[in-house]
Amino acid sequence: MKNIIMQRLGFAEAEAELMAQDLGSVCEQLKPLVEAWLETGAEDDATVYHGYSVNSLKETYGMYFTGAVLTLDWLIREPEKAKAALAMGIM
């Protein structure tokens, strides 16, 4: 996974290692998304979790697939905190 991340996102090895750990730890509902991305590079999904999907996070927030999946993971684990953070915006 680390090498795929380095290749696709241009990350340095250390950053890719961290990203791989994060993606490898996502909750069960999101694992198929990560696996499909690793296999085929698929980055679209409209499944909604607490009001957000991969597609909506990519479109509204400009997130990459990885950022969207990790954000969905937080939404699933701690929905109130994650929704509050998203509502706050970026400063």
Binding site: M63, T71, W74, A82, M88
Partner: peptide, 20 residues
């Protein structure tokens, strides 16, 4: 950082927590 690693990693950085 929030685009590649998601909102949680951005939000929980020490500089962001402190600023908030």
């Amino acid at each position: 950082i929030f685009k590649t690693r998601g909102i949680m990693h951005y939000f929980t950085q020490p500089v962001e927590v402190d600023a908030r």
